[in-house]
């Protein structure tokens, strides 16, 4: 059987906020290592990869690998019934056709029990090649969210450019253009700071669909910082860490010259 108890149930609520608008349903793969889910948006432009390692849970048992085929709209509706400080337990049999969700209030005076029916989902899994990224940028997640929102007013494309000590976001459209630059801060240990790491100090500039970047920022509440990894002619990686034991990552194909 499979049983996973998450003291900080809000993590699951926040993670699903970052998933549900991009992927309608997905296979949540449960193994002794934890829970993982990957899926592409219907246009196959963005890949979402969620990893929740077993250490994230205060109780975790998975005797045999279990696949939970979940409709994310339904999953989200049920998770909205949980309070932010509820403890959430997921349970399933070995070859399940349903998954049990148990919500316990922090002071244990209320328990809610839900059953979600599982669906068979036939989806392809993508192999992500090991890539040496030309640039790795860490910025406050709220700042990234704001920049994506602000630049979306100018057009459907956001250009991300990294040069030594600086990351620049720009957009151009019929109403005008915008350019927002963030400089690297001195002390990079602080979550409020910006860090820019480059391989060989070669500037890197790529264009992305602003619509998808805005979908990714729905995960902002998962982490104070977001990491962007860029490489010429490669998908952008946008990562939100879930403490030390999980992550929600997005891969977005760049717009390229025809």
């Amino acid at each position: 059987m499979f049983e996973a108890r998450l003291l900080q149930g809000s993590i699951l609520k926040k993670a699903l906020e970052g998933i549900r608008e991009l992927i309608t349903s997905g296979n949540w793969e449960c193994s002794s290592a934890g829970i993982s889910m990957q899926g592409m948006d219907p246009s196959h432009v963005a890949l979402t990869v969620l990893m929740l390692q077993n250490d994230l849970f205060d109780q975790f048992r998975c005797d045999r690998n279990v696949t939970l085929g979940l409709n994310h709209a339904t999953f989200s509706k049920i998770l909205k019934c949980a309070a932010n400080d509820d403890i959430i337990t997921l349970k399933a049999e070995d070859q399940p056709d349903e998954c049990n969700l148990l919500f316990q209030s922090a002071n244990d005076d209320k328990t809610s029990d839900f059953i979600i029916k599982l669906t068979d989902i036939d989806q392809e899994t993508l192999g992500i090649p090991d890539t040496e990224y030309a640039a790795t940028v860490k910025v406050p997640s709220v700042e990234f969210q704001r920049i994506c929102r602000d630049l979306s007013q100018f057009g459907d494309t956001i250009i991300i450019s990294v040069k030594k000590g600086c990351v620049e976001f720009s957009g151009t459209g019929e109403i005008g253009s915008a350019k927002i630059a963030l400089k690297e801060s001195g002390n990079v240990d602080d979550d409020e700071k910006v860090s820019v790491e480059m391989d060989k100090d070669t500037p890197c500039s790529l264009s992305f669909a602003s619509r998808y970047l805005n979908y990714f920022t729905k995960a902002t509440s998962l982490s104070d910082t977001v990491t962007l990894q860029l490489c010429p002619e490669h998908p952008l990686v946008v990562s939100y860490d879930i403490g030390d034991n999980g992550s929600l990552k997005y891969y977005l194909a760049p717009k390229i010259e025809e």
């Binding site: 246009s43 432009v45 993508l126 192999g127 090649p129 264009s207 998908p235 891969y251 010259e257």
Partner: peptide, 14 residues
């Protein structure tokens, strides 16, 4: 003019 390719251009299917 820039176009939007799908991820299959960059990633392989397992």
């Amino acid at each position: 003019k820039k176009v939007q390719p799908t991820l299959s251009r960059f990633f392989t299917t397992k």
